[in-house]
Write a protein that binds this DNA or RNA. Structure first.
Lengths: 143, 143
DNA sequence: TTACTTTAGTTGGTGGCACCAACTAAAACA
DNA sequence: TGTTTTAGTTGGTGCCACCAACTAAAGTAA
């Protein structure tokens, strides 16, 4: 009697978890090079193409709103982001990257790309495409 | 002019990073159910089949030895692990899981397996096998 | 309009996590 | 023997994440 195709063995689960930690290690190292946490790095990533409200950042990162307050406080103190009031809702605070924030964000993105590429280096293209498919589905599930 | 097969596009890098966060989210949630951090969860995982020294835990988790001191302190306070002196080297402290630690570890492992399986659910078996291959290579690279 | 409710964000407090520097004790080495 | 290395702890710092409590503004209903 065989298990069905889409039931995973512990080995497969383990592989995915290990892979995840390998990726996180890349992120942690890149962040540390700029004296940032992975969370700060993620926030800068968000700000690359958006000017979200505090609450939107919290929703995206799945953090408490008060956690985002602290996060933005520290990033602002480093001159990476700036708070700006909304013009349509006086309760709302928008967060945007400063020039320096954008610059650091770009450097980080490049370093992360290099680091992840080196993880994938040597793997056959079809395997990598399979990962992209799996990721797309997993993200839908996790969201 | 085409890029060679083993150079990744930003999309591919992004997919892998997103996948990693999806996995971490599973781990974070499972850990939180037991009021533990992901690091504590990893340590319990190590102790499932080993009785390492403090330094070995530090090496495995890539943490400072002092971080492991605190980690073990808190786990010990919760009755999940115990310190035991080495019989051959008086400098060394061995860390072992208690009965309760093993029990919690087993529950966590089961919950993580379920959570990761649900991420992979519906993906074709060959794709999953590709991820396992990629993971094996990436872990060698990252190590 | 007024009164109630919801939403956005901050503050203060707690605890965990991770680091570094400095330290003690034991082992290894010369 | 005396020196160096290794194992682990302690104290201090800062970040991170949470919760509860709070203010202010917006939305809603009488």
């Amino acid at each position: 009697m065989q298990p069905p195709d889409d039931v995973q063995t512990p080995d497969q689960v383990d592989a995915l978890v290990q892979l995840s930690f390998a990726v996180q290690l890349v992120l942690t190292r890149v962040a540390a090079e700029h004296d940032l946490s992975v969370t700060q790095l993620r926030m800068l990533g968000i700000l690359r193409d958006r000017t979200p409200t505090m609450a939107q950042i919290a929703a995206y990162l799945e953090l408490d709103r008060s956690s985002v307050s602290g996060l933005v406080d520290r990033a602002e103190r480093r001159g990476l982001v700036a708070r700006r009031p909304s013009e349509t809702d006086a309760r709302v605070t928008l967060v945007e990257a400063t020039d320096r924030g954008f610059a650091v964000g770009a450097q980080i993105a490049a370093a992360v790309t290099r680091g992840i590429q080196s993880l994938l280096e040597g793997s056959p293209a079809p395997d990598i495409e399979a990962v992209v498919r799996i990721a797309a589905r997993a993200i839908r599930t996790a969201g």
